[in-house]
Design a protein around this nucleic acid. Structure first.
Lengths: 200, 200, 200, 200
DNA sequence: AATGAATGAGTTTTCATTCAT
DNA sequence: TATGAATGAAAACTCATTCAT
């Protein structure tokens, strides 16, 4: 039983990985279930043993990854590091984790976020936003960040910045060697925290 | 000749507007060409008189909008306003499109990466990025902005911020009354230029 | 009035020639009315001023050409030349006339002959067959041709031979310089009249 | 594996036979894929499981038939029967296909030049011509046939004769009872070998 | 579990023909 | 007479999903 369950889990993972790859390359709507099966090296009827529908694949990809990510963001949120450090840690977390799997980013960021269907997923992203917002708000309450910027907006901007940098990497528009990632992290934090203007 | 050409141009516009409306409501893939024709109040086949395919409609919407947008961004870029003011103007320009034509923004935001011809769209977006970058770089050269932030990165972050705020409005996650839009503008500029940190 | 009629006739001819060319190249079903108009250098609505339908074009091409041809074959038939000479004259007539306009041959021979629709045209071809048959039969009655070959069949074979040689030229499978045409004529007559076998 | 492959082959054959039947009845362009599916008693989409397009059906019918036909013609060619007997056998072979499978002949005869991929069919027919030519040439070399008729031309005429007789049957212009077919065979051979002229 | 044949609704696209100008 | 925009019926083709083996 355990053995079979493991095998099942492996198959599921195998199919999910293939789906991520294919969705990333062609987009959800343009991808055919057959493409995913082919990418996974299995017969395409088998996809339906493990997932109810093509849509369920997308949802699963989203939930699996996002849940993990959200947990880790919340860990930072609930630790007591200074706000600037919190911003740095979350930025690093997202950039570095996703950097490992750019295909996943494309799917999460482009397909899920913008799919008109998946209302629930949007809620989840809302949770993530709230977590970012909380970090910023704490900074404001602790006097580290200025109170005149709306925390909610700042979270959205922050999230958008991360999203766009990741997209830039995926699409090959931004340099992404190891040093570049550290540099990106530094730049994002510098921008968000210190802004562009010359400090007097 | 002129009259006829004008009529044709009107029809094209009429069809494009219907397409924007329908795509905004149902998404590109879920929209049927018949819906667009019906929305435009014309016969089915006429769509194909003016556009080669459903896909060409989407591409045209992208290209037309981006071309216009880009022109106006470049106007700002080539004017001699202070950098901060330049940032404000471009931010306002993009955000206010939401108020002017929410359906258009919906389509642009949701379907960017859906087209198999993303490559060309990416080029257009790349041009826009370059324009944003130029504004920032001029600010740095003029001593108004600090030189230690990479201008290219800053442009990406800026673009990401705008995109995400628009997405927030599209998805109904952010308030978008008139005051909210002005507020968003102010917040984005404040964040980018001054940062979160309390200024001493 | 006369002038206008002439103009009309010219237009008709212009359109018919374009149609022959296009049908020959793409086949009747695959050809679009627009292609014909384009080939003729006119607006495609104009085709419908001169012809009721695409089908009528085909019928007209057939009738115009075939009627002429049939008349000339009948002239040979009703002249009193020896049968062998009759065979030669008709063979020469068809090969030489059609040789000038291979496109026309393709349309007549491939499209019309084999179209399931055009029953009347098939009848016309039947008339031509009858004319060929009459020439052969007269040869048999005059003792010049052997009576043991069915004249009707011989006519079919003769027609098929002509058809296939013309097709060979159109498709570039047979050499068709000037000398080759005379040679073809000689060969066909020799075959039909004398056969392959060595005469003792 | 073998079993499954056999089943697939059966389905292919089943669909091809349905296609031949439907094309014969309505012509290629007028036939709908749905008609073929219905005739075969299968679901619409299954046709596309086995064939890429409606066109591929036609091509397959051509290629399959010609390949078989060509093989059998070549058998005659490589046997050592007298040339006259060779001519008779090949003539019989082709004409009797009509009795065996009139629908197939209908499709072959009527749609040859309809396909945009005529070129390949032409090749096959070219091969057949070459085989006919070889038989005639051998007759000439063996002294049985006169050397003054061009073998290539004779092959074209022969092919044309066969094609036209079949066309006559297809169009109902020639009688095609059992006796008629034997008679046609005899007549064609007599004409080609002995000619029309009275032998002294 | 695994396969891939089978299903058929749903969509895009084409193009002959009509019609307003 | 000439134009080409407008119409819409007709068909090919796709592909998510089911199902027999």
């Amino acid at each position: 039983m355990t053995v079979r369950t493991d095998r099942q889990a492996d198959r599921r993972r195998q199919i999910l990985e293939a789906a991520v790859h294919v969705f990333a390359k062609n987009g959800f709507h343009t991808s055919r279930v057959g493409d995913i099966a082919e990418e996974a090296g299995i017969a395409y009827g088998l996809v339906y043993h493990y997932f109810k529908s093509k849509e369920e694949l997308l949802e699963t990809i989203f939930r699996d990854t996002w849940t993990q990510m959200l947990e880790r963001v919340r860990e930072v949120e609930s630790s007591s590091v200074p706000a600037r450090e919190g911003v740095r840690q979350v930025t690093a977390l997202l950039l570095r984790t996703w950097r490992r799997d750019p295909d996943l980013v494309r799917v999460l960021v482009r397909e899920v976020t913008r799919s008109p269907h998946v209302q629930r997923e949007i809620e989840e992203i809302g949770h993530a936003m709230k977590a970012l917002e909380a970090i910023i708000r704490r900074g404001q309450e602790g006097g580290e960040f200025a109170p005149d910027v709306d925390a909610r907006f700042a979270a959205v901007v922050w999230y958008g910045a991360l999203d766009e940098v990741l997209t830039g990497w995926v699409l090959g528009q931004l340099p992404d060697k190891d040093g570049d990632i550290a540099e990106a992290e530094r730049n994002i934090v510098a921008l968000l925290v210190d802004g562009l203007a010359v400090r007097p």
